[in-house]
Write a protein that binds this DNA or RNA. Structure first.
Lengths: 349, 349
DNA sequence: CGGGCTAGTGTTAACGTTCACACCATGACC
DNA sequence: GGTCATGGTGTGAACGTTAACACTAGCCCG
């Protein structure tokens, strides 16, 4: 079948002016009232089997498609949820969108997205308003930056809202991995291997998750009585990791680095390799996220795994609970786990 | 500000049953008819400045939000476009979604997504139907697999539809990079460097883009009179690239590899490094896509760049043209370009 | 001074569903 | 034999907006 060339639904002004069939058309064809058609459509019990079949046949014959706007108008329900994301090539956000969409579909909802260019307050608010125009019944906001989280707190309370990656301190219902615990996992692993201390390449200032990972790193170092080197601040990108890695490479004392995400770890690996510092022989590296490529970096990256799909599903779940008016327990922390590969080993003694 | 607990918007007296304000409420407050409110809302010219202001004030005071369902019902327009994607952690699809969303927003449309679990025919059709239920005015389908493309061809012609990454042979309007040309670029680059021939790690069978890249590779080899080694078939993942890389490493004749995407190239790099074959000294490697991490692999990856954001924008543009009934030129090929880094060099002679 | 134009506003009727009923057989029960 | 529930169906009336038209003033023009 060739399409595209054909005029498709193009109802050019011409004579015909054929409208898509409506419930009344189906009713007429089946010889019943429109209400009976509605009952069949919504699976009401009180319809005779034989009548139901006639209606079903008529629907098929006319290729009837219920008008969602009319239904929405009268039921006051859009069956739609919104996602606010940001324009990023980061692995996390984009993979969470799928988890959310699947969970939403399973719960019988449609999903519309609104991306916020910058995660600035105004940009996030604008995205939220776009979704409100669409009459969404709830919003999952993937906005892991302080300015954006503040914006969420000022969204009018009439609409159900869940933040993702907004950090444990946020003043909105939220779902996220326990970043502090994850960082501790990574740092303890390195200290247990025998490293004196651990350097940290962090995410950028103003990102709650970056801050929490820094906190976990600090806590683990403090518990072990290890010295706390200066944080190397990155921006989540491989490029920034590369730059940080150059700094690490210049420091002969540095034997272990914990990176705020895998992309930066990748950059660190590259910087170290470039100057001939071997991983893990000379320097150990640990990342965060466990991107699909992590096992195939050089060397395979030991990292802290976040299950983004799970985050998506859980945020959906929480959103629905809130939308139904439940009040309790609006703070879900998922436990990350350490995936040991070969980029971290005991230091050369 | 704490949210979630409080019940939101202040309402009409009579305790119970508080409905959101409607156009009539605004009209009453402003002392005009609802039609005048409608005119203000839609920016009609024939409203006295003073009246307009009164209406605007009233809207603000009531925190009025137009009911999109009612509007949709009467205008017969949803202002919504749909995206069909698939659940993948591939870089391309997820970054295109943003390009599309931005372009759609700029054109005044909302975007709803429907993901297809498997790219099987039925799964794609189901996703398309979900969008039709939502009354979308057009669909961009990111479904780069034959089974899915077939499904698109059988979508009823009433709805505007654009395929992305569906290959040049698809029987639907489409936007995509010129894969054949891109592959030729890569292979010629390697041959020009002095390699006798070039091996290829391809994407999986049944993916049009994989096939087109294979074709470009074959064409370039044939033009140069080079022998055509057996294709190593992967599945786009780093893991499959790693396996293919092991095969390459075992072949002492192999000095150059062109990979169907960057993830597989990454796996190849790792496999070669593991057995001590140096890149680019012993083996040259070229990828496809130019993922953000490509410059920071070991060594920095020479690759063919696709601009996914541009693909998103162009597909949106095409979709709107089709929706408006334009008939011509429904096949857009973007030209990729080679980004030379250091993973490919002349062979050791 | 009547006709026609224009700016500004109101009135009424769609749009296509679902909801709340009313209605009719039928059979059961006292 | 009358009441009562109960399966099955039809009849309005919403829902909240925009479209189409009608209606006033006020003004210009011949």
């Amino acid at each position: 079948m060739s399409r595209g060339a054909e005029g498709g639904g193009a109802q050019r002004p011409g004579d015909g002016e054929h409208r898509p069939p409506v419930m009344m058309d189906v009713a007429r064809l089946a010889g019943v009232s429109h209400q009976t058609v509605s009952r069949v459509l919504n699976g009401h019990a009180k319809v005779r089997q034989q009548t139901r079949q006639r209606v079903l046949d008529a629907m098929r014959e006319l290729d009837y498609q219920p008008n969602s706007a009319a239904r929405m108008l009268v039921t006051r329900r859009s069956n739609t949820l919104g996602i606010v994301t940001f324009d990023s090539t980061l692995f996390g956000p984009s993979s969470m969108v799928y988890g959310i969409e699947q969970a939403a579909r399973a719960a019988g909802y449609f999903v519309t997205i609104a991306s916020s260019r910058s995660l600035s307050r105004s940009s996030v608010l604008e995205a939220v308003n776009r979704l409100r125009e669409q009459a969404v019944e709830g919003i999952v906001a993937i906005v892991p930056k302080d300015s954006a989280v503040d914006a969420l707190a000022s969204v009018p309370a009439g609409i159900a809202l869940v933040g993702v990656g907004v950090g444990g301190a946020a003043d909105v219902p939220m779902v996220g991995v326990d970043n502090t615990a994850g960082a501790e996992l990574a740092v303890h692993h390195l200290l247990d291997l025998g490293h004196r201390t651990v350097h940290h390449v962090s995410g950028p200032a103003g990102w709650p998750e970056a801050r929490e990972r820094v906190a976990g790193w600090q806590k683990a170092l403090a518990e072990a009585g290890a010295a706390e080197p200066e944080v190397l601040v990155g921006d989540w990108s491989a490029r920034s990791g590369y730059q940080a890695g150059q700094a690490v490479a210049r420091d002969p004392e540095a034997t272990a680095v914990f990176c705020g995400n895998d992309q930066m770890a990748l950059g660190v690996l590259r910087a170290l390799s470039e100057v001939g510092r071997r991983v893990p022989d000379d320097v150990s590296v640990v990342g965060f996220d466990d991107i699909p490529e992590a096992p195939y970096l050089i060397p395979p990256l030991t990292t802290v795994r976040q299950d983004f799909g799970e985050v998506g599903r859980r945020s959906m779940e929480l959103l629905l609970r809130i939308a139904e008016g439940e009040q309790s327990h609006h703070r879900i922390h998922l436990t990350p786990r350490l995936v040991v590969r070969t980029s971290a080993a005991r230091p050369a003694s």
